[in-house]
Simulated scan of single mutants.
Amino acid sequence: MGGIDVISFDMLLHSYHLLLFNDPRRNFRRVVAINESKPATAGEVKSAVSDVRDHQDESTTPQYVDQSYPVKWSERLPWIGTLLHSMRFVDWKIGVPSHDSRQPDRHPNPPSHLRFILTAILRTLTGFVVVDLTSAWTQQDPYFKAFGVSIDSPLPNTGLITLIPPRLLRCTVMALQVWATVGQQFQLPCCLPVALHWAGYLSDPWSPHLWPTFFGSFRGVFTTQNLGAVRNFWGRYWHQTLRHYCSGPGVWIADFTHLPRRSYYRYFLLAATTFFFSGIVHIGLVPPEPAFAVKSANEIRWLILKFFWAQPLGFAFEMVVSRVLRGLDTPKPIYVMLNIVWFAAWCCLVLPLLGEAGRNLGYWRMWPIPLSPWQGVTRGKWLPWYA
């Protein structure tokens, strides 16, 4: 790459988290079921999870033990191997009370194997269609391909779509593409281990249909009893695969300086460090010599950094306004409305940073998928890469 790239920096953070900011051999414990030889059905796991939460029927509650770093070499290999692949530390106690209290973490309402596989395929196809339809717009909107065109410039169409503010529509298109390419692709690779668990070849901890979901409820972003849509989006909805690694340095600093666990100072420190490192991870998407750019590689990287580094400012705004609204005894329906409006406004403020970066990287210069139903139906060009 000639510079930072995503995989290398991600592995660097991963290594630092496990070797510099923590001591897994001393402090990490793997949560292991006493009997993992017989994979349980989804219904059995659902019942077991309910029992664990309610503490009502100990006879059907799975029995777990905390496994420290093993003495025997033969037991170390699975212990270490599982630790290295557990990016979200599911079924691990790592010394973080908010995380450890949920372990062993299981899907609260696990789907059947078949339902999980069918849902994964459906979500992938949904993402495929959304990318195709949004690409149809980016190909004919000069903002996405021509430099110097403002995000607030008039829309190319003259129909009812022009009633939508240009910035709002273009930010929605960008958000849908990110949602489709990232948010809908997590489950499809998990179909193979789920099928193997279904056939009895994998134990429960290795079957993704029993894990907590990668993404939370999007509706839940807006329905909390405070102004917190931006915080809820990043903390409850969006995937958490990099959360521990990016927040690790901040947690170490907070513990070293003895900041109280529930203090505002600690919260802001963790938010700032998490998005600081998340921004650095994502600038690895920029090659050293972008082929279509009018900006230098470093200028494009700064656009991406600004997007991620701005998020804690949104958190701070929400927390200040929430304190005022709580003093006014604001009803929940008002919070829902304010969260929707605020989230849309925030996206319209920060997403253009990614839009400008994407335009310079040439993201919208070619059709992103090799098979296009949209082009096939409208132009008879089903294979845009080859026609």
Rank of each mutant, 00 (worst) to 15 (best):
172 T>N: 12
181 T>R: 10
255 D>L: 13
247 S>E: 15
226 N>G: 14
182 V>N: 02
224 T>G: 13
168 L>G: 02
248 G>T: 00
164 I>P: 13
223 T>R: 15
157 N>P: 01
242 L>S: 04
223 T>L: 13
210 L>A: 02
196 L>Q: 10
248 G>A: 15
232 N>Q: 14
253 I>P: 06
201 Y>A: 15
193 P>F: 10
225 Q>V: 02
175 A>M: 11
245 Y>D: 07
232 N>H: 09
217 S>E: 10
248 G>D: 03
255 D>A: 03
218 F>W: 11
205 P>W: 08
194 V>A: 06
245 Y>H: 03
212 P>H: 03
196 L>Y: 07
181 T>H: 11
244 H>G: 03
213 T>H: 15
190 C>T: 12
229 A>L: 02
212 P>G: 02
158 T>N: 02
235 G>A: 13
257 T>L: 14
197 H>N: 13
208 P>L: 10
190 C>N: 06
201 Y>N: 01
172 T>R: 09
169 L>K: 03
208 P>E: 01
180 A>P: 04
232 N>E: 15
176 L>Y: 05
202 L>W: 05
169 L>T: 04
185 Q>G: 10
190 C>E: 08
248 G>F: 01
183 G>D: 08
206 W>N: 13
245 Y>V: 01
190 C>V: 11
241 T>F: 06
164 I>A: 09
192 L>S: 14
246 C>T: 15
179 W>A: 11
240 Q>N: 04
254 A>Q: 02
167 R>K: 05
249 P>C: 05
161 I>F: 14
164 I>N: 00
245 Y>N: 12
254 A>H: 07
237 Y>D: 01
204 D>Y: 01
248 G>P: 08
158 T>I: 12
199 A>M: 08
194 V>H: 03
249 P>A: 09
196 L>A: 13
215 F>W: 05
224 T>L: 07
160 L>G: 12
175 A>K: 05
207 S>V: 06
234 W>P: 00
197 H>E: 04
171 C>K: 02
240 Q>G: 00
198 W>M: 08
196 L>I: 01
238 W>R: 03
165 P>K: 13
239 H>N: 15
254 A>D: 06
165 P>M: 06
166 P>L: 15
195 A>I: 15
239 H>G: 13
167 R>T: 09
168 L>E: 04
162 T>N: 10
172 T>M: 04
249 P>M: 10
221 V>L: 09
242 L>V: 06
257 T>W: 12
156 P>R: 11
234 W>M: 03
